[in-house]
């Protein structure tokens, strides 16, 4: 025994949860919404998923190899999530090379260029989405979006609409129930079936992978502000309906799956509330006064940037002291 004694620091027991378990748990949580997206938009989107995930994993392997890290890390699920999430926030009509370029950009530039998992500043999938928006404005544009298959009712009424949040075009013919289930709702591949997303989100909360404060305060802020902020007179009728705002666009997928990305959000509970409310404020402002109908992606990317600052300002109160940080002592 003597010469093989393992000397290590306490604690000598560790919780069973690992990065891998957390990541694959998110993949499982995304699965119902992904399945619904294939129902809505056809098998074409399956190809988007496959290309996006395969490109993300391949890029991950190359980057790991280049950086001299163990290749086994490609199996930790993080690149898989990035690929999957990216596919889910692309328009169904986006050409395949968009998902390819986006996935490579997400993993190589947004993640590994900053030091790999844990060191990135922005959510890789979202940053790639924004990158694609600038790189292929036409391909990613609303008018190109395809018509989803219906769960019930007839499709004809919504055929001309690009997004439920489009400011021009027909008055919204979509009921809250349609929006909740994604019935006839145009939009990005994985964002339309709110029920499936909520199911996955609640699973992540129950599994304690996601802090419930973020979706609650994010969605809550959007709800309150779209309710209170005055809409212009030329605005469509739904613009003053907070339920319509909450159930439209990428808010639900963003609030449960992207604003909750551990790496790019604050570590303290109160910090997460600040972060989520900041996201909500931005979404409300962009949707109400901005020239862009959505705003979820930008709000999260914007607040990601502030995460280190929030972590610095909003610290827990140290036991036995009144202030978060006791006065600096001489080192």
């Amino acid at each position: 025994m003597e010469n093989q004694l393992l000397v290590s620091s306490s604690p000598h027991v560790r919780d069973a949860d690992t990065i891998e378990k957390i990541m694959w748990c998110v993949v499982v949580a995304l699965a119902p919404a992904a399945a619904m997206s294939i129902y809505f938009f056809g098998f074409g989107v399956l190809k988007v998923y496959v290309i996006s995930i395969a490109a993300a994993e391949a890029t991950e392997l190359l980057c790991l190899r280049w950086r001299g890290k163990p290749l086994s890390r490609a199996a930790d699920g993080s690149a898989f999530i990035t690929g999957m999430l990216l596919a889910m926030v692309l328009p169904p009509s986006a050409p395949y090379y968009c998902s390819l370029v986006g996935a490579v950009f997400a993993v190589a530039v947004v993640k590994h260029a900053f030091g790999g998992l844990g060191c990135n500043i922005w959510n890789p999938a979202l940053a790639a989405r924004v990158f694609l928006q600038f790189a292929y404005p036409l391909r990613m544009s609303l008018s190109q979006w395809s018509v989803p298959r219906m769960l019930w009712g007839k499709a004809a009424e919504v055929a001309t609409m690009a997004s439920p949040l489009a400011k021009e075009g027909a008055a919204a013919p979509l009921s809250h129930l349609d929006l909740l289930f994604g019935n006839g709702v145009p939009g990005c591949i994985g964002e339309t079936c709110k029920v499936a997303l909520l199911l996955g989100g609640l699973y992540l909360i129950a599994r304690r992978v996601v802090d419930w404060r973020i979706p609650l305060f994010y969605i809550g802020t959007v709800f309150v502000l779209t309710w209170l902020l005055p809409a212009g007179h030329d605005a469509p009728a739904w613009a003053a309906d907070p339920f319509y705002h909450v159930l439209s666009g990428g808010l639900i997928i963003g609030a449960f799956f992207m604003a909750t990305d551990m790496v790019t959000t604050p570590v303290t509970r109160r910090g997460r509330i600040v972060f989520a409310m900041g996201c909500g404020l931005l979404v409300a402002l962009i949707r109400r006064y901005g020239g862009y109908p959505e705003g979820v992606a930008y709000s999260i990317i914007f607040m990601n940037t502030f995460t280190p600052l929030i972590d610095r300002w909003v610290c827990p109160r140290v036991y036995g002291s009144r202030t978060p940080r006791p006065a600096r002592r001489q080192a």
Binding site: G115, L117, G118, C119, M262, T264, P266, R269, R272
Partner: peptide, 11 residues
């Protein structure tokens, strides 16, 4: 692995 900022240690 690198810290993923999950915040569990803080919590």
């Amino acid at each position: 692995r690198d810290c993923i900022h999950c915040g569990r240690c803080v919590e």
